[in-house]
Amino acid sequence: MNLQVIVIEGLSAMTTAASLFIIAAGLSLIFGALRVINVAHGTLYMYGAYFMATLFAASGSGWLFWVGLLVAPLFVAAIGAIAEVTLLRRVYERDHLVQLLVTYSLFLILSDLALRFWGTASLSANQPPSLSGAAMVGGVMFPAYDLFVIGCAVAMGLALWALLGRTMLGWKIRAAVEDPETLAASGTNVKRLFTLVFAIGSGLAGFGGAVIAPLQSVDPGMGQSVIVSAFIVAVIGGLGSIAGAAIGATLIGIVEAVGIFYLPSWAPAFIFVAMIVVLAVRPVGLMGQKLGY
């Protein structure tokens, strides 16, 4: 194997890792703060992608991509906020099965609404002209858009790290995870804080969908296919840990790249094997249990 192959394989592993992280981060944030596994997370991601694709169908000009990147997360965050207020906040105190049923019903409702709005045909979103070429990295040509996806994942990771570690909102989120009652006694409206967290997590999913949309076809199945791998990444990293999601995504990206290179027909099974191995060694995932950064 020569150096160029290693660079190319490495970069595509990183691209896979980046798109996995972009989806898993919001899932993990929501679980960390609200202790709810949001089965509908993939569907929110799909809404981000549809939003982007619709925007392009309307015009197709490059600058709308950047508008979409900004507005899709807000659109999906608003959907998340509505879902939290009407459904999720009623089940935080209930057991996991009830929560799972509620997020599953949210998944069904959102999927059906999407079918109604967008139909079954697959749409596509273009890459903006400024990112559609190839770029030279370490002596090889690599799609510029893939590098952009990697950049988005890194930026998102850093933003979450800064949010949770450096801002009042982040401290409050972590305080709410630890002791919501005491936080309320200090004067914080914890219900509203939880709505905000769910909206942020949903917005991250929407952002992910908008970023990934130009790389694949946007269709009704895209939410489902992604939720499983996002969940595996979050579980490997330790549900609730953002750093864990980053490590989990990197691990899966590498495992998948190596798998495809040596044993292509077995590659899809590898990520499950990776999850089983990690969970056998560390049942709480690589980065433990608490919401951290």
Partner: peptide
Amino acid sequence: LSTHQIARAGIGYVPSGRRVFSEL
């Protein structure tokens, strides 16, 4: 009223035990 509203109405609560935000 909910807890945060009662707090804002002017009551400070010091619970028993180790109830600080230990991660902060």
